[in-house]
Design a protein around this nucleic acid. Sequence first.
RNA 1: GCCCCCGUAGCUCAGCUGGAUAGAGCAGCGGACUUCUAAUCCGCAGGUCGCAGGUUCGAAUCCUGCCGGGGGCGCCA
Length: 541
Amino acid sequence: MADPVKELGEAVLAAAAELGATPKKRPTLERPPQADLGDYSSNAAMLLAGALKSPPREVAERLGEKLAGALGDAVERVEVAGPGFLNLHLSDRWLKAAAAAALADGDRFGRTAYEVSERVLVEFVSANPTGPITVAAARHAAYGDSLCRILEAAGDEVEREYYVNDYGGQVQRFAASLRARALGQEPPEDGYRGDYVAEVAARIDGAAELDDDELAKRGVALMVDAVRATLERFGVEMDRFSSERALQEGGAVDEAIERLAERGHVYEQDGATWLRTTDYGDDKDRVLRRSNGEKTYFAADIAYHEDKRERAYDHAIDILGADHHGYVGRMKAAWEALGGNPERLEYVIMQLVNLVEGGERAQMSKREGQFVTLDALVDDIGVDATRWFLVQRSPDTALDLDLDLARSHSQDNPVYYVQYAHARIASILRRVDAERVAAAVAGDLAASPEALHPSARDLIKKLLELPEEIRVAAERRAPHRIAADATEVAQAFTAFYRDCKVIGAAEEGGDEDLRLALCELARRTLASSLDLLGVSAPDRM
RNA sequence: GCCCCCGUAGCUCAGCUGGAUAGAGCAGCGGACUUCUAAUCCGCAGGUCGCAGGUUCGAAUCCUGCCGGGGGCGCCA
């Protein structure tokens, strides 16, 4: 896979090695803050200064000479600046060749650039099957699915999983509410009051006569179907729905408790069975089996994670809401108590989503039936805007989703800016024959006589960042970086579009083939980034 | 009281595993439509990076303390 920037970075490392020192950490190779400082800059000399016992600027001078010699005509000149930065001014030829290399990767440019492949399980959403998917869970869906797409792009083998809490108290209350609706009554005080309850009840034949367990199973099955449909409409396809009930009734939970007991982490107190999670850093011990004999949700989740562990993933990532963050300590403790490697179980804690309407926060309660569903939100502003909006911010940041704004100013959403850039490129490319574009893309770009306009140089450099952006987004579990990067790509293309005529480039001394090829590379990059976010890349708007 | 997240432009937020003069979108002001798509572009204005110390060649970024906001601390899930 092409990654010209990475190759350049390796050239810097090689030059450093020639000076007889290896930097303590990998030197940076990044775009300097100002264009006139060069195309790329590296802090390598500053990292080497200590080992070489020379001033950073002096090291930079020597490093620059080595590098210039190694890169030949790829480099125009090398300069030392500031505290010891090495600034590279590259030739047009290098940039054109780099673009050609990226184009040779087809639609896969930027993907699997770093071939460390791991098997990763991502568990997300996992909302209780007692009601529709709400906006809070929608953020999990948008984030989790984008993360999976990005991990896949970075070379990992990913499975998406939804844990269904189809057992226990809230499911019994759900069944009781279904029965009440089936009988034309109001749900019990502690039941579920949303309108959907009556609709679900109406779809279960003889609901009023079924026993509690059967009614719960049927109701949950219908809710899971609804959840699946909502997620699919949202572009999220789970590989597996895991059932808590199956674990409870299949004996897996008892087995897990037994295994913990064998390892000596369990004790009885006050009639309940406890796990000594404090041995693994939790702040208090936790109950596995209540004094009434019922096993806790925690006990079931231990069995579920034991199942995950046996499936031998390199990483199991759980995405939880901030309101569950207190759960992390005990789960990690249980994982370790059963011999799990703590580095393989990873938690992402998503901060909450607040809906704002009429300038006020809308309170959400599934129990009371007061909530905005994901379906309703998608009806309002569409899948693309919804996904973009929910994923464009760091999971660490609480999100205020202003419904009035989302409705009335949906045109201001940056997703349209990025999509528009894609549509605009598609429009340009439509004006010439497909064969012509294909030939331009496959052509020898490095041989193009065109002197690159600064906007074209900037565009190429921005496009070449994609492999690194994907790698970092994957590594830091940060899909929002892809959204930010896509916006920057769209901006870079728009500047190029403004300054460089593509069709009829010859009129201003340009090379139409080269510019068509750059358009295609920009289009692929935008389409790729949008795909990583689950957002469509339209050809027309 | 303890734990987690946040505090950066008027607003919403990037940047946070240390690098050069801290960025984007929106809002505001002033311009550009005989267009390869104006869902766009150009310019202007806008900052004690919550506060105070510390670490070092260098701190928005790392450490400590404090202040403010959100979330959590159950034999609920």
